[in-house]
Amino acid sequence: MTTNTTASTEVTQVATTRPVQPTLGWAPWRRAFWYHATFWSRTWRGQVISSFLFPVLYLASMGLGVGKLVNHHSGGVSGVTYLEFVAPALLAMTGMQIASNESMWPILASFKWTRSYWTAVSTPITPRDLVIGKLSWVAVHVAMVGVIYTCVLEAFQTLLSPWAVLLPLAGVLTGLAYAAPIAAFTATQENEKSFPVFYRFAIIPMFLFSGSFYPISQLPSWLRVVVQFVPLYHGVAICRTLALGQGSLATTGYHVGVLVALAVLGAYLCDRNFRKRLEA
């Protein structure tokens, strides 16, 4: 009986005193953003360590292993050492990798398993807030990793131009060009069957053929045309331009334009597909 009375007094308080009302405030999407940040923050230590470790291993193997061979036989690539050539590609590749990881299983889980998107849309959050929250989280995630990678690249003395400070942004742009269309696709899926297929037949070939490890001039001409449709190719090209200070404004504009177009189109489709699914 005593406990009952206490509990009911508390409810009365909950019900009668309303010192703070829910507000819509500015930009509700930032609350969807915090959702992702909260989960990331629970494991950030491990992630930061791997963020240092991976580029160090990559640069060591590419620079010291493959690089030595290439430099020895052909005296570098496009006028720079092999290490300087491959290093900046790391930013674009990581952008692609983080973005595709973030946009497949976690999004499907939020629709189907944890149902956290349904939880969110029962609050003032809208499907659009979820899309903006997710994509801005991908951007911030890639940017954080990008800053670390850029520092590692600098430590390996592979950055030849002051424009290299923009490398994290190039990673972010590449990431969004992947995250937005993939998220839009995931929002239409009922199960994860297509994800491994997408990895094997899209992500990995893109990784191998987008000019990360050799200039695309080495490819047969028909493949050079195909590569123009691969976001990673454009991301790698932008990163290389920033790191080495090579390349013209026009070609860089073309690469940036393709990525921006993909990100914008993807975001539009995301908005449509998220709403379709959550407001059914």
């Binding site: 629970r42 944890t114 149902r115 349904w118 029962s122």
Partner: peptide, 21 residues
């Protein structure tokens, strides 16, 4: 006024959707 109304609703959905982690 969806978001404005939802700010003042409480919903217990049929399927639990807690963050189990």
């Amino acid at each position: 006024k969806g978001p404005q109304i939802r700010a003042r609703l409480g919903l217990v959905p049929q399927e639990d959707s807690l963050e189990l982690e």
